[in-house]
């Protein structure tokens, strides 16, 4: 049993370990499959800083991921709460259509979306092509997050809403003062999921961001790998740096995350 677990753990951790080790080796060392930590980390780092504007890309990624996460939590939880608590005849039909929208692959939406934003560029350049807003807007409301919040709201005690109403709270007050504090773990889990997917989002930012100054971290890493003679040590260093924030967010909120996921399964 422990042997099996050990082997599985090793298999899942090995790529991560190899990535960290490789970031300390020169490129030739990486291609030869060297598994010992090397002394090349600082050379890789200085090459990296020289070749790409790492700080600016990290800042771009961070701003986009934080704003997306904030807006997505607000919209997703309001919608999920509304779908579960309020009664309406059209509710289920609307919700089902929403779920069906999860099945449309993003590739099919990309060209129409691009057209929309190209059109917007002419009217309102601040949210047109090549802006952070253009990256955030299509990703801030997802059917998955609404579904996730609705499922978790099923555990939310209706009596608390009644109690709130009796004590004279408005509907918004009930949501903000009672629902949000009690559903902290759900928010944490949703925050991690959204932050990670926004941080790692590749296809849409790739298409919509044009200038070097706006690029996010995954786009820059993709550039590094496209060279005829790639410097694998440097690429690994970049990937380690790009992984750190998501790892950090995950470890900080790990406890809530597990609790939140368990809640959604119930």
């Amino acid at each position: 049993m422990y042997l099996f677990l050990g082997v599985t753990a090793f298999v899942s951790i090995f790529p991560f370990l190899w990535m960290v080790v490789s970031s300390t080796n020169p490129s030739v060392g990486v291609t030869k499959g060297r598994l010992m930590p090397g002394t090349h980390l600082f050379v890789n780092l200085s090459n990296l800083v020289e070749q790409i504007d790492l700080v600016r890309a990290l800042a771009n990624s961070l701003v986009i991921a934080l704003i997306t996460t904030g807006l997505a939590l607000l919209i997703g939880s309001l919608a999920g709460y509304g779908f579960e608590i309020y009664r309406s005849r059209a509710k289920d039909a609307v919700f089902n259509i929403l779920l069906l929208s999860m099945m449309i692959p993003f590739a099919a939406l990309m060209v129409p979306l691009y057209r929309m934003f190209a059109w917007l560029s002419g009217k309102m350049p601040v949210i047109g092509i090549d802006t952070k807003a253009a990256v955030i807007l299509p990703t801030m409301a997802t059917a998955f997050l609404i579904f996730f919040f609705r499922q978790n709201t099923k555990m939310f005690e209706r009596e608390m809403i009644e109690a709130g109403r009796i004590d004279g709270l408005g509907e918004l007050g009930i949501f903000l003062r009672i629902y949000v504090p009690t559903m902290r773990t759900t928010y944490a889990a949703a925050a991690i999921i959204t932050f990670m997917s926004s941080w790692n989002n590749y296809m849409w930012p790739l298409v919509v961001l044009q200038s070097d100054a706006k690029k996010t971290i995954p786009l820059l890493i993709s550039n590094l790998g496209s060279s005829y003679s790639p410097d694998y040590g440097m690429i690994m260093t970049a990937i380690v740096i790009a992984t750190l924030p998501t790892a950090l967010v995950f470890f900080l909120m790990q406890k809530h995350f597990v609790a939140g996921m368990l809640g959604s399964v119930k």
């Binding site: 060209v111 129409p112 691009y114 057209r115 190209a118 560029s121 002419g122 047109g128 092509i129 044009q210």
Partner: peptide, 10 residues
């Protein structure tokens, strides 16, 4: 994507 969407923006 850009050419396919028929616009020249970007």
């Amino acid at each position: 994507t850009g050419l396919g969407s028929g616009t020249t923006t970007g």
